[in-house]
Amino acid sequence: MPKVDYRLNAIVDFDAIGPDKALGELALAAVHGGATIIQYRDKNSPTRDMILRAREIHAAIKATGVPLLVNDRIDVALAAGVEGVHVGREDMAVADVRRLLGPNAIIGLTVKNELDAQAAIDGDIDYACIGGLFETPTKENLEPIGFEGFKRLAAIIRKVKPNLPVGAIAGIGLERTPLAIEAGADGVAVISAIFRQNDPQAAAKGLRDAVDEALRVKERQVKQA
Rank of each mutant, 00 (worst) to 15 (best):
D5M: 05
D5A: 07
Y6R: 02
Y6F: 13
R7S: 12
R7L: 03
R7W: 02
N9I: 02
A10K: 13
A10H: 12
I11C: 10
D13T: 11
A16E: 10
A16C: 09
I17Y: 07
D20G: 06
D20V: 01
D20S: 14
K21C: 07
G24C: 05
E25S: 14
L26K: 11
L26Q: 12
A29C: 03
A29V: 04
G33S: 09
G33N: 09
G34W: 07
A35G: 06
I37D: 00
Q39R: 10
Y40W: 04
Y40L: 15
R41I: 02
D42A: 15
S45N: 14
P46D: 14
R48N: 14
D49T: 11
M50R: 15
I51F: 12
A59I: 01
A59N: 15
G65R: 10
G65V: 10
P67I: 06
V70D: 05
N71K: 13
D72I: 13
D75T: 08
L78A: 13
A80D: 12
G81N: 14
G81V: 08
V82E: 07
E83K: 11
G84H: 08
H86Y: 07
H86M: 05
R89F: 09
D91C: 08
D91E: 09
A93T: 04
V94L: 13
V97N: 13
R98Y: 13
L100S: 14
P103A: 15
I107R: 09
L109M: 11
K112H: 11
L115C: 01
D116K: 00
Q118C: 03
A119I: 02
A119H: 07
A119M: 10
A120Y: 09
A120R: 01
I121Q: 06
D122K: 05
A128T: 04
A128C: 04
L133T: 08
E135K: 15
T136K: 08
T136E: 01
P137N: 09
P137H: 08
T138I: 04
K139I: 00
E140K: 14
E140H: 08
N141R: 03
E143S: 15
I145F: 00
I145E: 01
I156M: 10
K161R: 15
N163G: 10
L164E: 10
P165E: 11
G167D: 05
A168S: 04
A168D: 01
I169D: 00
A170I: 00
I172L: 04
I172N: 02
E175D: 12
A180P: 00
A180M: 02
A183T: 09
A183Y: 08
A183D: 12
D186R: 01
D186I: 07
G187R: 03
V190G: 02
I191W: 06
I191F: 05
I191D: 00
I191K: 10
I191S: 04
S192D: 02
S192N: 06
Q197Y: 08
N198M: 02
D199S: 11
P200N: 10
P200S: 09
A202Q: 14
A202S: 13
A202H: 11
A204W: 05
K205N: 12
K205F: 08
E213I: 03
E213V: 05
L215N: 05
K218W: 01
V222N: 11
A225F: 04
